[in-house]
Amino acid sequence: MTAKDTVAVRVARGAVVFRLQRRSALLTSMLWLCALTLAVAALGLGEFDLRLADTLRVLGGGGTLIEYDVVVRDRLPRVVTGLGVGAAFAVSGAILQRIAANPLVSPDVIGVNAGASFGALLVMTVAGGAGASLVLGALAGALLTSAAIVLIALNRGLNGYRLVLVGIGIAAMLSSAISYLLVRADYHQVLSAASWLTGSLANRGTLHVTIVLVALAVAVPVLLVLGRHLRILELGDDLARTLSGGTTRVRLALITTAVVLAAMATAAAGPIGFIALVAPQITRRLLAGRPVTLGPAAAAGALLVTGADLVARLLFAPTELPVGAVTGVLGAPVLLYLLARANRIGHTG
């Protein structure tokens, strides 16, 4: 599938850009279509029995009190939160992977996961809080940790490599603290904490929907402006500096956007693993190895999370799994398949 495009790259640059954009737009809309279809299906499916007609009636404002509770107050926020955090994680991962030029980089490298988890766990097991305090704890943990990592790494310019190393150090300290809180917690708390730490969309409400939508509403305009710098940065430090000047400032702005997106998504749904890592990789390979624009990655992220949550709810029903337990099982085979199939990645990937 790639041969024609590759040839074209060399022949006529303009035509290829157009073809890639068309291809990327097509892929994006297809992925979003799948994601939205799954999302609507998710409103009607679950442990509480509802026929399609009932679901539609409830969405139209009818139905019993309990049916309304199940569809509108329980399933709807979870589905919307899922779509939003999927997109947010994926965009965040795509930005960071391109800045660091390292496919293993995802927001957890700059401490978002560890910070949010530590904050949330502190609220849960020490203060006994839940709800808004849990969200705040996670958000504060994620943002403070990322800020600390960037500040510590900011030593005569922002070196991607140093950033990664500092991230490793801080994340190790925090995950030790998390293990400590988990090991000393009582058995029943551990069950609840384990679920949050896996990343879960259970019991989400207006608060969580608001957070993730605000995050996206802020990030999208910023990225429309800064997006073009991503391609320049990818050429490497030296070239980028010549082309755009002030790379450190642009990098900081992009990293900040990525961190805020991931932090708010984590606050809303916990550290759902692997989406930030795999969604950009999948779209990159579906787009024949060209650098990904952020749109397709966002769509892939939304689709992955929505699909994973549906599986998580139905697979072992009536027992429900947190969505994070499934994203790896669903996302990894896709990546592995693409890896195994693409025989060019020895060079391009």
Binding site: A130, G131, L134, S192, W196, G205, L207, H208
Partner: peptide, 10 residues
Amino acid sequence: AEQGADSSVG
């Protein structure tokens, strides 16, 4: 427990 806690029914 409140929303966001996972072994909770609200």
